[in-house]
């Protein structure tokens, strides 16, 4: 499974992505950023174009603006889901209230990002959606020297058992489920700690620091890299 993922990473060229955005400049910027990651981006501006595009060639991921030509596109998302469309979908929206977010997820979006966003955040989330595997029921994870038993909730580095606090375990599990993939601080806060907003702090970094001290071997580069201003990545050589 791990090998497949690494192969996929190099094969982004073949990954079709449907961007539903009627704001030309916005569409251009997003498309540019995603193309740099190797996605084949197709832009749709109306519901008709979306339906045609999804029928012709089902994309691997969809990025949908919540507002299209002044109307709420949640109805369109519901229609798509109603027709059996299961393509992972990131909803981007200028509406940032909690209720708007909940509505977006209820309608069938898999993730919700409020405008304006950091482009790397969008790219990281698209990447996470693309690789979202249906592995919710696996009992163990493996990443490089790390082996995680999800039933006993134990982690080993090579043969050595690591002692992690429950929260540290959850944090590491998140990284091991998304190896070689940029994980942003916001993603960690939302998915591991279930916070949506937090006063500006380096809380996440401190937790990562503690985790690193427990899982890293002395004298070797850390398994969890810091990626520029964006976030972190569990780096695993295949």
């Amino acid at each position: 499974m791990m090998d497949d993922r690494v192969v996929e990473l190099h094969n982004n060229e073949s990954t079709p992505l449907l961007l539903v955005e009627d704001e030309f400049d916005m569409a251009q910027e997003i498309s540019l950023a995603l193309q740099q990651q190797g996605y084949a981006v197709q832009i749709a501006e109306t519901e008709g174009e979306v339906l045609a595009a999804t029928r012709a060639r089902p994309p691997a991921v969809m990025v949908v603006d919540r507002m299209l030509r002044g109307t709420d596109s949640l109805a369109m998302i519901e229609t798509l889901r109603g027709q059996g469309n299961r393509v992972p979908m990131l909803v981007i929206s200028a509406l940032s209230s909690v209720d708007d977010r909940i509505l977006g997820l209820k309608a069938g979006g898999d993730d919700y990002l409020a405008k304006p966003f950091v482009m790397d955040e969008l790219v990281a989330r698209v990447e996470a959606l693309r690789r979202r595997a249906s592995d919710a029921r696996v009992t163990s994870l493996k990443a490089g020297p790390l082996t995680m038993d999800l039933v006993d909730r134990t982690v080993q580095r090579d043969d050595k058992l690591l002692s992690l606090l429950p929260r540290e375990f959850n944090l590491l599990e998140y990284f091991m489920r998304h190896p070689n993939q940029i994980i942003t601080r916001a993603m960690l806060l939302e998915d591991v700690w279930h916070y949506r907003t937090l006063p500006q702090t380096n809380v996440v970094d401190v937790h990562i620091g503690k985790l690193r001290r427990k899982i890293d071997a002395a004298g070797e580069p850390s398994l969890i890299e810091t990626v520029r201003a964006v976030g972190f990545m569990l780096h695993v050589d295949s």
Partner: peptide, 16 residues
């Protein structure tokens, strides 16, 4: 919010 945030998003993306 929409009219303001969309251009700001574009602006931000360009700056990035």
């Amino acid at each position: 919010a929409h009219d303001l945030r969309t251009p700001l998003s574009i602006l931000r993306a360009r700056l990035e």
